[in-house]
Design a binder for these strands. Sequence first.
DNA 1: GTACATTTCAAACAGTTGTTTGAAATGGGG
DNA 2: CCCCATTTCAAACAACTGTTTGAAATGTAC
Lengths: 223, 223
Amino acid sequence: MSRVQTQQKILDAAEGLFAESGFNDTSLRQITGRAEVNLAAVNYHFGSKKALIQAVLQRYLQVVMPRLEQQFDALLARQQPSTLSEVLAVFVQPLLELKQVKPQGTTLFLQLLGRGYTDVQGHLRKFISHHYGSVLNKFVLLVQQSCPSLSNAEIFWRLHFSLGTVVFTMASSEALFDIAAADYREQADIASVIRRLLPYLAAGIAAPTIDSKQLDLMAQATF
Amino acid sequence: MSRVQTQQKILDAAEGLFAESGFNDTSLRQITGRAEVNLAAVNYHFGSKKALIQAVLQRYLQVVMPRLEQQFDALLARQQPSTLSEVLAVFVQPLLELKQVKPQGTTLFLQLLGRGYTDVQGHLRKFISHHYGSVLNKFVLLVQQSCPSLSNAEIFWRLHFSLGTVVFTMASSEALFDIAAADYREQADIASVIRRLLPYLAAGIAAPTIDSKQLDLMAQATF
DNA sequence: GTACATTTCAAACAGTTGTTTGAAATGGGG
DNA sequence: CCCCATTTCAAACAACTGTTTGAAATGTAC
């Protein structure tokens, strides 16, 4: 079997299992079993499990990230600042295009992203900010321009709140789909979740700030 | 050593390690090592690691949940529906009161909650909805009353988005504190994060809905 | 078809995990 | 003090993990 065939079989098997069960709870024996490949093949072709995880993510990142950067650049080249909704909407097209790479591509990638941020804390964060930090900086800059009234610290926190929303939703998307289908007769797919997500994120990021005095009043209002 | 002393030492050691490294990445040998207790003590006193995890969470849940329910009941007994901000503000007081149970109680509990939802998917969700489902239903009812224009399905999704925000933020709160301190000279503690969280969540949950036509326009606006 | 490099394979490695065991120690009530 | 239940302890258990090994098979160029 040729080099690329084996590598591809491993990547395909691995990404499915990783998305289902997370990185920690997926063993190399499960992966090589599903890929119909010898156990040692992973270490031979990728070096280690960690490297395999990165390779699985890289297959999608190297498609999505340049598309995102290109769109960010287009917005940055404008004269007047973009609205927050415009900035967030940039993600939709590149993510949905992953379906062309592979039928379930969008769902798989977002689930993997969710797993990567929740399973082993820090690893994926460092990997992404190291390889694609410049792209993310452009995104942050666009958000800052669209919300000039917010301090940079406030934006930092709210963007991480938003990251949490996305990552958690995607990591548990399969369970949420099931619940939504059972309780609300929803035929939920990844595109419909994205559609629901954007207004939530836009409103949260651009929310008015309140000072601590107001918060204290709110907290005591129910006594 | 008396029964309760050993159990307490195990619980104290376990909750700290669980909060730091998550449930999967914390071994019983680490726990019994820190607790200065024999390895077999966990299985003798709690039965299994899974039961220990639940016991760790129960110590806080059985304090927080009755307090929450009591506040929800107070709001439900009102004549006019509460505002969303009022409903969300209910969480502040009971969570901060955990500091009286134990100095770092609030932070620990929220980190554990985050770990529980991100580490082993589903387990904690089932456990909480089984033991405290009625309390959560009252919360959902209050949110529905405060946002009459939103469909129940929309509220379902937005509450899970919010759960993701909280859970992810808390699970990685230590890392976020460090970044915030380094980049924005922020002295961030759990109370200040809650203060930042509430307006974000309130705005996100109450965000105006957009139809798919508008979304498509947004997505194509940058071409 | 021979020579050489690449790839596969079964087997074993060393490490960790949660759990169980049976004896030793400790506890308090009669 | 003795008895009996409770609790501790060191040791071993079986199952799993990612990784390495060295020989066998396959592929490729001459």
